[in-house]
Nucleic acid binder design. Structure first.
Lengths: 191, 191
DNA sequence: ACCTGAACACCGTTCAAGT
DNA sequence: ACCTGAACACCGTTCAAGT
């Protein structure tokens, strides 16, 4: 039967998961799916568009949390970020893929919409909530990328292990600092 | 006369500045320098190594600040980040290049060493200062990338301008939030 | 020491033509 | 509607051989 867009996305997710972004080429996908390269372009407009769908699929693993009370908003934000982290941490180069998707079609990434809602619910004015989300997202994706590089370097023979700010600890430290900074910047949300 | 490594780096900086990372290929550089591609590999081991030198050159524009007093450390940190931002903001894809360099050979980027010193000087324990630097750097590079994408999208005809967290304002907001969070997390440095 | 020429093993994208 | 075949215009890297 005919190839579907879903199959194409799934194949992309699986190659990414097993081999990383460097091996995720349209030609490789075509080989994997037993079609010619050109066939893929009937289902997606470009590789970038495919990667957006890959990112959406990865983040789709995160369950939608219920809206917290105003006092619980910071906790809910931290919890959501933790969920995002564990959804992405084991997928090589996932940070890069999500970054791309976020700039190409941010509305395709539902959990990032929830994050914004939670921030506003915590008492941060709408315009600044966008900035705050950027801050949190840059930290999340940066931490994930650093963690994955650390693992990659550790596998190479000539690895000098100068990977700091990699692990869970660094991630949580950053979240704590940002949330505290937000509480200072927006005192209304502090209690 | 013979090609030098310096000339190669300069050519790379200039192609990056004018056309961006997508156009910065070894073959293009060879064309620009009137040599065969293979010649470049006598001067650098790989494209990645060249990009590290490009990043170092870009950050080399930032003058070394003198060590601040302990109370002035947060201000000095903010000032240094501002300098880094203006050194990179006009260079397309500079954030990506710096990110690569930072993971490949962090010691090649002197200003990032100063940043770490300032953080420790501000009273942050050495291990956490590494985390804090990551946090600041992710925000810096994230802001620069967002700003450049916003400009890139604005030039395209079918641009939907959903670029928030792009400008100077977003950058400074983030710095403020992080520095405040750090002050809360490390009360010794608060006064 | 420094470079050429040529190869190797790839890319993303397009598109007439087939079924 | 969906795919093939083939082309277009590229990549990074290596290396024998030349000067």
């Amino acid at each position: 039967m005919a190839l579907t867009r879903e199959q194409l996305i799934d194949a992309a997710v699986s190659v990414l998961s097993e081999f990383g972004l460097a091996d995720l080429s349209m030609r490789r996908l075509a080989r994997e799916l037993d079609v010619q390269v050109g066939a893929l372009y009937w289902h997606v407009k470009s590789k970038q568009e495919l990667l957006v769908d890959v990112a959406a699929k990865l983040l789709g693993k995160v369950p939608q949390p219920s809206m917290p009370t105003r006092q619980m908003a910071p906790l809910a934000i931290a919890a959501l970020l933790d969920q995002l982290r564990s959804a992405l941490l084991t997928i090589p180069d996932s940070a890069e893929v999500v970054q791309l998707a976020q700039t190409m079609r941010p509305e395709a990434l539902a959990p990032l919409g929830w994050l914004l809602e939670f921030l506003e619910h915590a008492g941060i004015p709408a315009d600044q909530a966008l900035y705050a989300r950027h801050l949190l997202l840059n930290h999340l994706l940066g931490s994930i990328a650093a963690h994955q590089e650390a693992r990659a370097l550790a596998e190479e023979p000539d690895a000098v292990a100068h990977a700091a700010g990699s692990g869970q600890e660094a991630f949580e430290y950053g979240i704590r600092v940002i949330l505290q900074g937000l509480a200072v910047e927006h005192p209304a949300s502090a209690e």
